[in-house]
């Protein structure tokens, strides 16, 4: 390929058309990805409030989050909360969605319509769900406590108390389960029936079929869910529209912390935190892709 280009010259070979076609996206990633990343690295080694030029160059943004008491407190809190959410979302994505999809993967009248219903909450614009959940979780007048009391359960503080804010957020994130469900069910339907028929002939029970056929044949979805949960989970912004960073910073996530520093014009610190997040995500993604030999994409690929 290279040789033929050299013989004919770039102009005659028509290769220049290719360069023009991909120009927008290459210029795009340069302007909107690589230059900002470079700038961000530069600003992260300075104190910068946008209005005055960057000053006070050094590594203080990276060290202060460990030495300055207030910054360290926020940094550690945000890491802890992001980790909690990450673990929860991986468990939900891999186990709860899987089990629910197994249950829903049956031939029953109207099943397709039900699956659409389960997916619907994902379509609610975030500001709509924020309006709904802010009202439902109101500790005094909300529907949530009214329903709990009806069932004979005591009232709950939801987002109003630091101790209950995180559990509330995690439980409410269950309403987004529908998109994962769709993936699992599609994956299950791609598994050839012949495999299960063969297992039936050998007298395998339902559990054995699940462990020995369904799970190994679903590795692409497991891999995708894992990668997606990690990348999206590390960037969780939490219910910012409902409660900001939560009472007593109980819902301060890593990205929320970056955003709040941006809002307070601590641009240097915001950039340093962004770079930490980038390095973690890049390393995790690369490791996962390196170790992805267990993913089975079918015979033909």
């Amino acid at each position: 390929m290279q040789a033929s280009f050299r013989k004919k010259g770039l102009l005659k070979s028509g290769a220049w058309v290719g360069y023009i076609l991909i120009a927008p996206c290459m210029i795009g990633i340069l302007i909107f990805n690589f230059i900002p990343m470079g700038l961000s690295l530069f600003y992260s080694f300075s104190t910068y409030d946008i209005i005055n030029p960057p000053r006070n160059f050094g590594v203080h943004n990276y060290t202060n989050v460990f030495t300055n008491v207030i910054l360290r407190d926020k940094f550690l809190k945000s890491m802890l909360h992001t980790g909690e959410y990450l673990i929860f979302s991986i468990l939900i994505g891999l186990f709860l969605s899987f089990l629910l999809a197994l249950f829903l993967n049956q031939k029953l009248k109207g099943m397709a319509a039900y699956r659409v219903l389960y997916y619907l909450p994902n379509l609610l614009p975030p500001v709509c769900s924020a309006i709904v959940w802010a009202d439902i979780t109101d500790p005094l007048y909300g529907l949530g406590n009214s329903l709990l009391n009806h069932m004979g359960l005591p009232s709950y503080t939801f987002y109003a108390d630091p101790s209950s804010a995180m559990p509330t957020f995690l439980i409410l994130s269950l309403w987004g389960l529908g998109s994962g469900l769709m993936l699992w069910i599609a994956q299950f339907q791609n598994i050839p029936d012949a495999l299960y028929e063969a297992a039936d002939l050998e007298g395998a029970n339902a559990f054995e079929k699940c462990i020995k056929i369904t799970v190994p044949m679903s590795t692409p979805t497991i891999f995708y869910t894992l990668i997606n949960s990690i990348i999206a989970g590390l960037q969780v912004f939490g219910p910012y529209l409902v409660t900001g960073a939560g009472p007593d910073d109980s819902l301060l996530f890593f990205v929320t912390n970056i955003y709040i520093n941006h809002r307070e014009f601590n641009m240097g610190l915001a950039c340093a935190l962004s770079w930490m997040l980038f390095v973690v995500i890049a390393v995790l993604t690369l490791v996962l892709f390196r170790k992805s030999k267990w993913v089975f994409y079918g015979e033909d690929i």
């Binding site: 220049w16 290719g18 996206c25 990805n33 230059i35 961000s40 962004s274 980038f278 995500i281």
Partner: peptide, 27 residues
């Protein structure tokens, strides 16, 4: 379209998936 450097350009493009949105938005 075939042109020299297509593979590298495409890998560069794909590498941007790993950059978290907020890391670019603030700069």
């Amino acid at each position: 379209v075939r042109f020299p450097g297509r593979g590298i350009a495409f890998s560069l493009l794909l590498s941007t998936i790993m950059i978290p949105g907020i890391a670019m938005q603030i700069p």
